[in-house]
Design a protein around this nucleic acid. Structure first.
Length: 270
DNA sequence: AAATTCTCCTGAAGGC
DNA sequence: TGCCTTCAGGAGAATT
C-alpha cells in the first residue's frame, strides 16, 4: 500500500526514463478508477513534452507546459517503465507511451486515479488544501502543536489527516508513534509540546529511512523497476500484533482506530 | 465545526 | 481441493 516513501520511490524511479520526452500516445484500457480517467486526457497531452515528474503528498504530478497529469496509486497502484512491446495484463489500466519507453499504470483495486489539471495545478481541489510536506521545514513542532491544539480526536487520526500533514499513512503513523512513545489513541490536544516535537522528528526519521530502503512492500508494492521495498524488515509495530515489543518485550496490542489497524505497546506508548 | 462513519474495489487468507 | 466469508485500506464524501 503506497505511502509517501513508496510514491517517492516510484517518482525517483520513473522520472529519469521519461522526463524531457514527448508523450506520443495515451492508452486507457479501463477508465473506471476512483474517478473516471478524463475522456479528453489524450487530447490534452498527446504530442506534448513532459517537463518533470513531481510529487505532492502521495500525488504524482506529470508536469507539462500547460498543466499536469495528476496520478495517485491508491492502495494497490503501481507505475512501471516498460518496453513498448511489453504485453499488458489484467489491471494494467493506463499506458502513457513516450518516445523511448512506456509508463504503465496498474491498479487491481482501482482506488487510485489519473486526472488532468490545467495550470495552475495546485488549484485542483485534491491539492489545494493539503498540509505541509512531512520532510519539509514547514512540518515542525510549532505547526503540529497548533494543529493539535484543542483537538479531541486521536493523535493517530490527526497524523493521517492530509490537511494537517501529507503522506503519513497507516503504516508510518503506527511506526512514528511507537518511536515517539505516544499512545495512538491519546487525544491530540492532550500531548505536551515537547512530546509533539519528538513526534515530528519521528515522522521525519521513519519516512526518510523508508525512502532509503525503497519503501515498504506488504502485499504487492513494487517500484518502477518491479522490485519490492525493503523497509518491511524494519517495522517495529505494524503487522506485529501479539509479538514482543522490541523495547520491553511485552506483547504488542492491536486495536481499530477509524477502521485502521493500530498496533502499539501499552507500556512504552503513553 | 469537529469527529466519525461510509464508500469505492479485488486479492489474499482463513474456516469448514 | 474448493467454496465461502472476512479483511485490508487511501482518502474524499457523507453523516452525525
Amino acid at each position: 500500500m503506497p505511502e509517501l516513501p513508496e510514491v517517492e520511490t516510484t517518482r525517483a524511479g520513473i522520472s529519469p526514463h521519461i522526463e524531457a520526452q514527448t508523450l506520443v500516445n495515451v492508452m486507457v484500457r479501463d477508465s473506471r478508477l476512483r474517478w473516471p480517467v478524463p475522456s479528453d486526457l489524450a487530447a490534452q497531452v498527446e504530442g506534448r513534452r513532459l517537463n518533470k515528474v513531481l510529487r505532492r503528498g502521495k500525488y504524482l504530478l506529470f508536469e507539462f507546459d500547460h498543466g499536469c497529469i495528476i496520478g495517485h496509486l491508491g492502495m494497490t497502484g503501481s507505475m512501471r517503465i516498460v518496453a513498448h512491446d511489453e504485453p499488458c495484463s489484467y489491471h494494467d489500466h493506463v499506458d502513457l507511451v513516450f518516445e523511448k519507453v512506456t509508463l504503465r499504470y496498474r491498479d487491481p483495486r482501482r482506488f487510485g486515479c489519473i486526472l488532468w489539471q490545467t495550470h495552475p495545478v495546485m488549484e485542483h481541489a485534491l491539492l489545494a488544501h493539503l498540509g505541509p510536506e512531512p520532510l519539509s521545514e514547514d512540518f515542525n513542532p510549532v505547526h503540529l502543536l497548533k494543529a493539535c491544539k484543542g483537538k479531541k480526536l486521536a493523535i493517530k487520526s490527526l497524523l493521517m489527516d492530509s490537511k494537517k500533514v501529507v503522506g503519513v499513512g497507516n503504516i508510518y503513523a503506527n511506526e512514528a508513534l511507537f518511536m515517539a512513545g505516544i499512545n495512538p489513541h491519546r487525544q491530540a490536544g492532550r500531548i505536551s509540546a515537547q512530546r509533539l516535537g519528538l513526534l515530528v522528528g519521528a515522522c521525519k526519521l521513519v519516512l526518510t529511512q523508508a525512502i532509503e530502503q525503497g519503501g515498504t512492500t506488504l502485499r504487492n508494492f513494487v517500484d518502477s523497476d518491479g522490485n519490492p521495498g525493503y523497509f518491511k524488515q524494519r517495522l517495529q509495530v505494524y503487522g506485529r500484533a501479539g509479538y514482543a515489543c522490541t523495547q520491553c518485550g511485552q506483547p504488542l496490542i492491536e486495536s481499530r482506530l477509524g477502521q485502521r489497524s493500530t498496533v502499539y505497546c501499552k507500556l512504552c506508548q503513553r
